[in-house]
Design a protein around this nucleic acid. Structure first.
Length: 569
RNA sequence: UGCCCGGUCGUCUAAGGGUAGGACAGCGGUUUUUGGUACCGUAUGUGGGGGUUCGAAUCCUCCCCGGGCAACCA
């Protein structure tokens, strides 16, 4: 052993894998399983967010990697909060992310099985009906540092318990009057083993089983058994379920079920946002955002509406890794993944957000010239488009500066810049109104500097995007900033709403765009394929769901990296 | 103050007794008709103390720090 180097046989070198893959490799190597089956188990009480995307890529990714499969199972054991609206959105989001489940299942599919499991525990003297109030139960539960004590109902006979439990099912008792508890150990150091509740009475309508049931199993009594019924080999959940694992195993052992095993990983936390479904719901209900799919939301539907691609989200999930330590991922990684994908697929277009007029004084009156510009320099197969140029254009207001520092590469009096895909121009004059605001910039162009056939020898440091005033169309552009002002709103003192970023949305209601966007929109309407854009020198954009051919509306997916802005900080 | 987890660059994540590596972020360059992209370079890390060992991020031990656990939520 000593002295042998790991490099002597490269094929023996371990490929880096996360701890779940190590577990699976071992299970497979030891013959514990021949293949694997995982499951993604959302509760249909809210929309999926980027944290769920991590869980989805972990579960489905493992299923794929090992040639196994993954079930989609809705954990619908609490009818009060659950709804088919959420079921539908969850299915859509999982598929949009690019995954296909083997079976679509519901914990509620197993209500009858679960009931029988409960009867078995009762017959085996391992469960009892407790008539105590929830306060009494809590009082007898003890604390993490002090053991609990037995309920006075703990010694009921199996017959009595079975009778009571069947009558609970029959609807003889009101909500909260009785529960079924597992009989384990009131002095266990694990609070969850202190005779946990496994069935409660809820006279509530269930989104799938309707009014068929008035007793519902708790998470602990449903999840593991559902896994076992489906022969799930690896039941992967987040860290907060760690202490549930002992209970999970107890049920499987006592009920003699398929030995599914639970493993826990650290959930995703993303900087400058929140992941709590409850808080997300509050943002929606209190109208701090436009809905679950508001482009500022960390929901899958929000990211989709904003223009994130499934590929970029998958890549993000792959890069953050899977481990057991708490984490707070820098949102810049998500943005990097978006840019990385979008750079290769986004169509380049020119849009001027905050326009100022620029007149080329030596342009032949009435002349319109068609210029060619590449749709995507990263992908020659996307070809070129024609852009009309007639000597009077809009440029961005901040692409001009009257007193410019040396490092400023854009327009200023006497300076020359390239107009993207057009000519080099030199600024000669500025027109201002009474308040000193620039109303018109006057330039000359250099006829021999035409893009692609430049013989002028003039070197322009900067290149500006522009739109012909005559041909421009008006569009609405929405830019987004982080939803919260602080890195970790969940950790902050007081109400998380106090940390909402008031400037998370900037609307440009009348931006000027090149007319190609109209053609694109028509094409998209016909093909159903909505293109991703890069508005040059601005960022990546995607048509909003509210966009129509009469009024195009674009969401900023993510801005371009901006080293100039950084220099000026 | 009980039980259970965890602690490696700023942020994530590898290294399974043998050179602490990668990514993002940062910084500095080169190229560029996007201050984009691409490419190159660069700084920054094993929570602390004791052990075991020729050798420790890795094994043992004590301590420190962070998280979870007292819903008829999941």
């Amino acid at each position: 052993m000593s002295g042998t180097k790991k490099t002597e046989n490269p094929s023996e070198e371990r490929a880096p894998r996360n701890f779940l893959e190590e577990i699976i490799d071992n299970d497979l190597a030891e013959g514990r399983h021949k293949t694997i089956l995982t499951r993604f188990p959302p509760e249909p009480n809210g929309y999926l967010h980027i944290g769920h995307a991590k869980s989805i890529t972990v579960n489905f990714g493992l299923g794929q990697k090992y040639g196994g499969a993954t079930n989609l199972r809705f954990d619908d054991t609490n009818p009060i909060t659950e709804d088919t609206e959420y079921v539908d959105s969850i299915k859509q989001d999982v598929q949009w992310l690019g995954y296909q489940w083997k079976e679509e299942l519901y914990a509620s599919d197993y209500f009858e099985n679960l009931f029988e499991f409960a009867i078995k525990l009762i017959r085996d003297g391992l469960a009892y009906v407790d008539d105590s109030t929830s306060e009494e139960i809590a009082a007898l539960k003890g604390t993490p540092t002090r053991p609990g004590s037995d309920s006075p109902f703990r010694t009921r006979t199996p017959d009595e318990n079975e009778d009571l439990f069947r009558r609970m099912r029959a609807g003889e008792f009101p909500d909260g009057s009785r529960i079924l508890r597992a009989k384990i150990d009131m002095s266990s150091p694990n609070m969850l083993m202190r005779d946990p509740v496994i069935y409660r009475i809820k006279h509530a309508h269930h989104h799938r089983t309707g009014d068929q049931w008035c007793i519902y199993p708790t998470y602990d009594f449903a999840h593991g058994q559902s896994d076992a019924i489906e022969n799930i080999t690896h039941s992967i959940c987040t860290l907060e379920f760690m202490s549930h694992r002992e209970l999970y195993n107890w049920f499987i052992e006592k009920l003699e079920l398929f030995p599914s095993r639970q493993y826990e990983f650290a959930r995703l936390n993303l900087s400058y946002t929140i992941m709590s479904k409850r808080k997300l719901l509050q943002l929606v209900n209190e109208k701090h955002v436009d809905g679950w799919d508001d482009p500022r939301m960390p929901t899958i539907s929000g990211l989709r509406r904003r223009g994130y691609t499934p590929k970029s989200i998958q890549e993000f999930c792959a890069r953050i890794g899977v481990a057991k330590r708490d984490n707070l991922i820098d949102v810049s990684l998500l943005e990097f993944c978006a840019r990385e994908d979008l750079n290769k697929i986004a169509l380049r277009r020119m849009v001027v957000f905050d326009p100022v007029k620029l007149v080329i004084t030596n342009w032949p009156k009435g002349k319109v010239e068609m210029l060619e510009s590449e749709n995507n320099p990263e992908d020659a197969t996307t070809g070129e488009r024609s852009i009309a140029f007639n000597g009077t254009i809009y440029i961005e207001r901040d692409d001009f500066m009257e007193d410019a520092p040396k490092k400023y590469f854009r327009l200023s009096p006497g300076a020359s810049v390239r107009l993207k895909s057009a000519y080099i121009i030199t600024c000669e004059d500025v027109v201002k109104d009474d308040s000193g605001t620039v109303t018109e910039i006057r330039c000359v162009y250099h006829p021999d500097s035409r893009s692609g056939s430049d013989t002028s020898g003039i070197k322009a440091k900067g290149t500006l995007h522009w739109v012909s005033t005559e041909h421009a169309i008006e569009v609405e552009v929405r830019d987004y900033d982080r939803l919260f002002r602080v890195e970790n709103p969940a950790e902050e003192e007081g109400d998380f709403l106090d940390y909402v970023n008031p400037d998370s949305l900037t609307v440009f209601p009348k931006a000027y765009a090149e007319p190609a966007l109209i053609d694109d929109a028509n094409e998209a309407a016909a093909s159903g394929k909505i293109p991703h854009y890069q508005f040059m020198r601005k960022g990546y954009y995607y048509a909003d769901t509210s966009s129509t051919s009469d009024k195009l509306v674009f969401n900023q997916t993510v801005g371009l990296r901006d080293t100039w802005a950084k220099m000026n900080k």
